[in-house]
Design a protein around this nucleic acid. Structure first.
Lengths: 290, 290
DNA sequence: AACGGCTCATACCGGACGGGTATCACAGCG
DNA sequence: CGCTGTGATACCCGTCCGGTATGAGCCGTT
């Protein structure tokens, strides 16, 4: 047979993530024997061993790791199909807009105002994300559109429209010597001995090596700056979330950051199209006065 | 309930494409009543009407068109999961490389030679495509890697590495006045009255309006040029498939075309990685002598 | 070395549900 | 006013999913 059911993929993902049939079964709300049987059937249908059942637990084979990755994206796609269809069926549905918390605050406020001013425009649910969550939300259909930032975010696979281009500033603790400068260069902020760059977790949750503090959220980062433990280089508009204890100094040679509005390719529903149009109009008025 | 099974998606796609339960059931190899029931259940689970059952046939609702699109990509993803897992499980698996028939012929030949010269490299199956088929093959897991051409092909959603940059030439029928020129400009070839640009089908199979002949394959196009019915502007290396009746004249101001090797993001299996490395090495040797 | 724990696999059974056949209801059309 | 073609309904059957009970290795423990 050739066709997999999503049930089989869900089961496999649970086992592959838990690496333990018992816990996986519990998570799935079924008993362990049917799960064992389902995985065995799956292996048989694919003609591939997916798990090494050694003594004491299970390990993924190479084919298993491939399937785990592929199954996750496939399940994402199925889930997205469900959510997008439900949204499409509901004429009152609010559009879900994902954006990085604290970033592009002015732009977002103006966008929401502009949409509210339009008669008949769909209401908008704003989903505030940390770091690079927007892509996942778009892909899984939990968000209809997102504000993202080139070149920080990975825009691969989305249609986008530029909304705003801006320079970057260094955010420094107020008392620091560099904070009194009118402008800085990347070379100057790159290696400040007493303000090492903070480290963000990788996708797997581990942290790269380095001298800087480990952070997971923007609030942590903001506080660390206020405490004089680190500095960061961010788009100028992110000054919106700077604290009184922060000082922002333009970094003249930092690459420009473009705020874009992004949506899943070829899923331009009328509501999304209208929102993109409204946003683009904002861009045209925003460009003269940045 | 929240989880759809791929079976339901397959059934819906069949109905949505046939717009007729009987034919859809036949295509699926089941009887019509169970199919009706399945679709009805699907609508109930999604809480959305997908089809308008008027007298005499069915029509898609808005939600239905959304689900049709989403279901296709979701089924693609599931199919890709199956194929990629099977490939991963087979140590002898040949890598499937998709490329436009006739394009980048020299590069392909050198790539295949280079791979063959490497001890222990996986064998390569070449899939020759028309126009933009490569993206679909990559997405559905039928191909592991593809040679694509920026800016012609849509590279969104893939990781790529540049292999070759080249200018473009105008391909003209040998007897035509322009064929005797040493070089041309875009403006000159854009609107030649007796050689209108050919028209390619859109995704839905329909053709845009215009004076040029309708074509579906490169061979058709090549023959039309030889017959003095049209001209085309193509990458210089595509001269490989020019006929004796053709003349190629460089178009000096046409944008450069970059041949890239593309693969699905984050699915860089060892074999794919090795192939990309071999190809990149070719690029370095190819650049000095284009 | 024997035991108890933890793992996953096997055996078996019941019930839900997917699929089949037969038939109906309804619209268009000659 | 039948005939044709549509999808919907009714009902039955068989498969297969999921449950319980139990077995079989492998470990660490005593």
């Amino acid at each position: 047979m050739d066709h997999l059911e999503t049930r089989e993929l869900r089961y496999f993902v649970a086992v592959a993530e838990e690496l333990n049939f018992g816990r996986a079964a519990e998570r799935l709300g079924i008993a362990q024997p049917p799960l064992s049987r389902a995985i065995r059937q799956l292996e048989h249908r694919l003609g591939a061993r997916l798990l090494d059942r050694n003594r004491r637990g299970v390990a993924l084979t190479h084919a298993g790791t491939v399937l785990l990755r592929e199954a996750r994206t496939a399940l994402d796609a199925v889930g997205a199909a469900v959510r997008r269809t439900r949204r499409a069926a509901d004429p009152q549905r609010p559009l879900a807009l994902a954006t990085k918390a604290g970033a592009s605050h002015q732009l977002l406020r103006r966008l929401l105002d502009a949409v509210a001013a339009e008669p008949g425009a769909a209401p908008i649910d704003v989903i505030l994300c940390e770091v690079g969550e927007q892509a996942g939300l778009l892909r899984s259909g939990r968000a209809d559109v997102a504000l993202m930032h080139h070149p920080f975010d990975d825009l691969a696979g989305f249609d986008t429209e530029a909304l705003y281009v801006e320079g970057q500033v260094a955010l420094l603790p107020a008392g620091h010597p560099l904070a009194s400068r009118d402008e800085l260069t990347l070379a100057e902020v790159q290696n400040v001995p007493d303000l090492p760059i903070a480290r963000w977790p990788r996708l797997d949750g581990s942290y790269p090596d380095g001298p800087g503090p480990e952070v997971r959220t923007q609030s942590q980062l903001a506080q660390l700056v206020a405490l004089g433990k680190t500095l960061l280089v961010i788009p100028a508009s992110s000054r919106a979330w700077q604290w009184p204890e922060h000082v922002a100094v333009p970094v003249v040679d930092a690459p420009d950051v473009t705020t874009v509005i992004a949506w899943p390719p070829s899923s331009r529903s009328p509501a999304v199209a209208a929102l993109v149009r409204t946003a683009s109009a904002l861009y045209d008025t925003a460009r003269p006065a940045p």
